[in-house]
Write a protein that binds this DNA or RNA. Structure first.
Length: 290
DNA sequence: GAAGCGTGGAT
DNA sequence: TATCCAAGCTT
């Protein structure tokens, strides 16, 4: 098995993008917020929202002091608004359980709302410099191609962490760069649709390239159709409530033109169950409680 | 493990 | 135009 670390680390030193969360002294809270926003949302869309968020709430305590509605409203059109709710809850938990300091320990990070295997290790590694495997979709794609000779990675699995751990250099700082470099290669060179193998620093040892770029199939889960989905109605409803905030709206004013009223009611109920909407006496609003 | 969960740009 | 894709998490 080729050692990918030396060429990837060297490539990263020369080719890493300058991103806000990579600036020296950006801080663990900034890294944490950036990772929440980057969960399934592209870098280019995140950057302006991240800067606005951190200007408004420079610390977890500042966010925790406001109602969840403020977080959901500030989240705007980033998508997956449950993340805004979870980030707010995490800020409350950090304030109550950790004295307002973002924890460094992976298990403590994992215990926070909205933080899973990826985000916990990303914070521990990129904010604190500790040695852990950080595995996102970019990493999984790079390893699937370079080491397994596959065109696309399989669905996420627990074994991914051990696989990446085995590739990390011993030193903490080099391991952190290796994690970042593998993600960066997947994000900018070894991309999903049209990889740029001519500029790839590990093309010479890539198993997929050596095999002639075979179509090995794609076991990734397909996204469900969005048009006409519950997700789309939820988006319509929540956008209306954001635009009206802080004023409430009558439930009858939420997606009134949606062709399927049963589906619309189901979507509203699910938003309420998620805690993204509060409803009472025929009125609906962003969540003020907790 | 599989399903559900937004939004918008690229192809 | 339709599909793909994006630094995932919770249930």
């Amino acid at each position: 098995m080729p050692d990918l670390a030396p060429p990837l680390i060297a490539w990263y030193r020369d080719n890493a993008r300058e991103l806000p969360w990579r600036a020296p002294g950006f801080g663990a809270w900034g890294v944490l917020v950036s990772e929440f926003m980057l969960q399934q949302t592209p870098v280019a869309r995140v950057i302006p929202h991240l800067e606005a968020w951190l200007t408004r709430w420079p610390t977890p305590a500042a966010l925790a002091a406001e109602p969840p509605a403020a977080a959901v409203h500030q989240w705007a059109n980033l998508g997956y608004p449950r993340r805004a709710l979870w980030l707010h809850r995490a800020a409350v938990e950090i304030t109550e359980r950790h004295g307002g300091e973002v924890p460094r320990d992976v298990d403590e990070l994992l215990a926070l709302t909205g933080i899973g295997d990826y985000t916990a290790r990303a914070v521990a590694v990129f904010a604190y410099g500790d040695r852990h495997p950080v595995v996102d979709t970019n990493t999984r794609r790079v390893l699937a191609r370079a080491l397994d000779g596959r065109a696309q990675p399989g669905p996420p699995a627990r074994t991914d962490l051990a696989a990446m751990d085995g590739l990390l250099p011993r030193a903490d700082d080099e391991a952190a760069v290796m994690n970042a470099a593998t993600m960066e290669l997947g994000a900018t060179v070894c991309v999903a649709r049209t990889p740029r193998c001519e500029i790839c620093p590990v093309s010479g040892v890539c198993a997929w390239r050596a095999a002639g770029f075979p179509d090995t199939g794609d076991r990734r889960r397909k996204q469900a159709r969005y048009e006409g989905s519950d997700r789309q109605v939820r988006g319509v409803i929540l956008r209306a409530l954001r635009d009206a905030a802080p004023e409430p709206l009558l439930e009858l004013q939420l997606a009134p033109d949606w062709p399927d009223p049963v589906q619309r009611d189901r979507a509203l109920d699910s938003l309420i169950a998620d805690g993204l909407v509060e409803a009472a006496d025929g009125w609906a609003r962003l969540p003020t409680g907790r």
